[in-house]
Write a protein that binds this DNA or RNA. Structure first.
Length: 268
DNA sequence: ATACCGACCTGTCAGC
DNA sequence: TGCTGACAGGTCGGTA
């Protein structure tokens, strides 16, 4: 589900809603797949801790906790269907809820994930993403990064070790805006093409953040509200529909197992 | 080194 | 109505 703009939206929403609050107690479900730290360890790190800040790193949500003298990080990845929301304690418990943190303010912070592709862990060492932040990297560095791999550009954009945060929707949208075919080999792109792609990636991510993310199916922000960027998608999910620029039907192909959408006329 | 492919899970929707 | 298969925002590990 969530790519950089969705995770950013959740992190900002949580930062606004729960920074300064504290965790009084925690309930942990019995789904080992989503818990990457032992339940005991999570309980120990989180119970009694003050929430200093909530921020995004790549596609991860990082909650900075202060527990006694030791800073601890609570790291959450939403996978495809995860949600991390704050709600009143009496809100009905959703199916597939894996963790509930009761806050001093009386509200609850809940981690819900039906498909269980998400992850939740605690860490005492600073968490960092493998790849570069697309909104922080410079154009030169971006070019060097993509000249260094022979993979199809669509696959390269999805490779979190190169760039952290771009997922299937925004990869397709950025390639459309830059006029580049998704199967083109990354190292064969000209400097000018990579410069357009750099601009397109940043532009689409900024616009999507401003719209509160894309809700295709079940993505929700920290307060359980939908995003609005689904109305601004130009190619993703528009197979056979006319290109918004040239009216040619949008094509759908599969690249490294992911559904890929592009305009055969506008993208070279 | 690189790149496909299935696996991990549950839910939904289209088609028969 | 109900079954079956395809598909879904993401990553990982195995294999070629």
């Amino acid at each position: 589900m969530p790519e950089l703009p969705e995770v950013e939206t959740v992190a900002r929403g949580l930062q606004k809603a729960v920074a300064g609050d504290a965790v009084e107690s925690v309930w942990i479900g019995k789904r080992p797949q989503v818990l990457k730290s032992a339940a005991r360890e999570i309980e120990k790190a989180v119970t009694g801790a003050t929430i200093a800040a909530v921020r995004r790193v790549g596609k991860h949500i990082v909650v900075d906790l202060q527990n006694g003298s030791a800073p601890v990080q609570w790291v959450v990845h939403l996978g495809m269907t995860g949600s991390f929301v704050v709600c009143p304690a009496d809100a009905p418990l959703e199916k597939h809820t894996h963790l509930v943190a009761r806050l001093r303010s009386g509200r609850e912070l809940r981690f819900v994930d039906p498909r269980m592709f998400g992850k939740l862990a605690v860490a005492s060492t600073a968490f960092s993403a493998a790849g570069a932040e697309p909104l922080e990297i410079g154009a030169e560095e971006f070019t060097a990064l993509f000249h260094g791999t022979r993979a199809p550009i669509k696959s390269a954009l999805l490779n979190q070790a190169l760039l952290s945060g771009v997922g299937n929707i925004y990869a397709d949208e950025a390639l459309f805006r830059a006029g580049i075919r998704p199967r083109r080999r990354s190292h064969t792109l000209t400097r000018a093409e990579l410069r357009s792609l750099y601009d397109a990636v940043r532009e689409v991510l900024h616009e999507a953040i401003a719209a509160g993310g894309t809700t295709v199916n079940d993505y929700m922000n920290a307060l359980g509200e939908s995003g609005r960027f689904q109305f601004d998608l130009r190619v993703y999910g528009r197979e056979t529909e006319p290109c918004l620029r040239c009216r040619t039907p949008i094509k759908r192909i599969v690249i490294s197992g992911r559904s890929t959408h592009y305009c055969p006329k506008c993208q070279k």
